[in-house]
């Protein structure tokens, strides 16, 4: 089978996701028939958005590596734009914000080029210093620290962290290893999204004790534990197909994604609670904004990447 530029195990997993989406569609259809009085609009919207996300993602990673890198750059752009539209900003910093956007093409060029050192230091060192310097040139000192701090936090989360997904695609391939690149990417993205779903489902069905009541009152200890264990199990199941991880390493990878996904989720929740908004935007029907969907990835992408890099690349 030769559709798209993906290895057979990756294709098999994508077909598996397709099957899960079809099952979900049947379940929702049954729910609506059995209980026609109740509104299922949010569920329907949510599922429809999953279909759209799935097809965009498959096209992005399946066409070519360059297309995939451009796709993640665009994802960073959407996320940064949503963040900057959400937080208080200073009129004086309009042009500084423009420079902040320019870090996106630069950062993804380092990815495209495989320039690992520059990829690592560009946002935390160069952008950190140069954007502060650009702000000083503007000369507005009122709320300077808040403006510099919030802007750099956004760059770290939306540009630096997310760009780790793209860098998974340019890691060197081992001889005889068919799974590098897209396999790792599908692994971390799929497990992160399933971890979100698993934590939600476990929390709904047997959660009582709240885990972070002031940040996210809906999250429970049972949801967290059940979610992490589910993710570990899925990691053990999928790792042999998509990654070079051993059995023991795949357990650790599942723990990293399970715990990291939870932390990313509640970190963006804390941001939204601070700003007094429920959703970060309205770009994805049934989900909210782009940040509501990639919140967990801001943690799992860099954590999983550096775990892989340390042990295998």
């Amino acid at each position: 089978m030769t559709w798209l530029a993906l290895e057979p195990p990756v294709q098999a997993v994508l077909v598996g996701i397709l099957a899960v989406l079809i099952v979900a569609e049947v379940v929702v259809w049954t729910l609506r028939r059995r209980n026609p009085g109740k509104s299922h609009q949010e569920l329907v919207d949510r599922l429809r958005s999953w279909w759209v996300i799935f097809f965009i993602f498959v096209l992005a990673i399946g066409l070519s590596r360059t297309v995939a890198i451009v796709f993640f750059a665009f994802l960073s752009f959407l996320a940064l734009k949503e963040y900057l539209s959400l937080i208080p900003t200073r009129r004086a910093d309009r042009r500084v914000l423009f420079w902040a956007y320019l870090t996106i093409p630069a950062q993804y060029y380092w990815v495209y080029d495989g320039w690992y050192n520059m990829f690592l230091v560009f946002v935390p060192v160069w952008a950190f210093l140069l954007i502060a310097a650009r702000m000083v040139l503007v000369g507005e000192t009122r709320e300077f620290l808040r403006a510099a701090g919030t802007l750099h936090w956004g760059l770290m989360m939306m540009v630096f962290a997310i760009s780790h997904l793209a860098y998974l695609l340019v890691l060197p391939t081992h001889v005889g290893d068919t799974s590098a690149g897209p396999g790792l990417l599908v692994f971390v993205v799929l497990l992160t999204q399933l971890n979100d779903v698993a934590q939600y489902v476990w929390g709904k069905s047997l959660g009582r004790r709240r885990i972070v009541p002031t940040v996210s009152p809906g999250k429970t200890v049972a949801g967290f534990v059940g979610g992490v264990l589910t993710t570990v199990a899925l990691s053990m199941l999928l790792a042999p197909l998509l990654t070079p991880l051993s059995r023991a390493e795949s357990i650790a990878a599942g723990l990293i994604i399970g715990v990291g996904g939870f932390l990313g989720d509640v970190t963006i929740s804390a941001l939204k609670r601070d700003l007094g908004v429920k959703d970060s935007g309205s770009l994805i029907p049934g989900h909210g904004g782009i940040l509501d969907r990639i919140d967990s990835l801001t943690f799992t992408a860099p954590l999983f990447f550096h775990y892989m890099k340390f042990f295998h690349y």
Binding site: K81, L84, T89, R94, R95, L97, Y101
Partner: peptide
């Protein structure tokens, strides 16, 4: 709301905002 941030009066540089 937002366009006054993206391209206010007297500016030529468009800065993206939702």
């Amino acid at each position: 709301h937002g366009l006054g941030k993206a391209l206010p009066r007297g500016e030529w540089l468009l800065v993206p905002f939702f």
